[in-house]
Amino acid sequence: MLPSYLTLAAILFCIGLYGALAKRNAIIVLLSLELMLNAVNLNLIAFSKYGVVPSLTGQIFSVFTITVAAAEAAVAVAVLIALFRARGTVDVEHMNAMRR
């Protein structure tokens, strides 16, 4: 079963990568990032059951990852709201103040 889970996680990660690269709405980019993090979590938990040395460490790691992802989502939405207040847009194409 392990290759099936790994393939599923790879599919999810690649869909998330495409969304993060190609989408212009910053909220959707954030959602794609969450999708990629979730794919990693699926890998961790799959290895914690089907890995060479099954143990709970994978699940502990995935819980830590979920916590960090929640903190990241909160800060990112706050940054987006502040940015929208300052610039009036959430288009990632317009977030190039440091490039000019």
Binding site: N25, I27, L30, L31, A69, V77, F84, V90
Partner: peptide, 14 residues
């Protein structure tokens, strides 16, 4: 996270 994203959409203009 879903509710947070919905709030983020609500607070910004699309």
């Amino acid at each position: 996270v879903s509710i947070l994203m919905v709030f983020g959409i609500m607070m910004t203009k699309h």
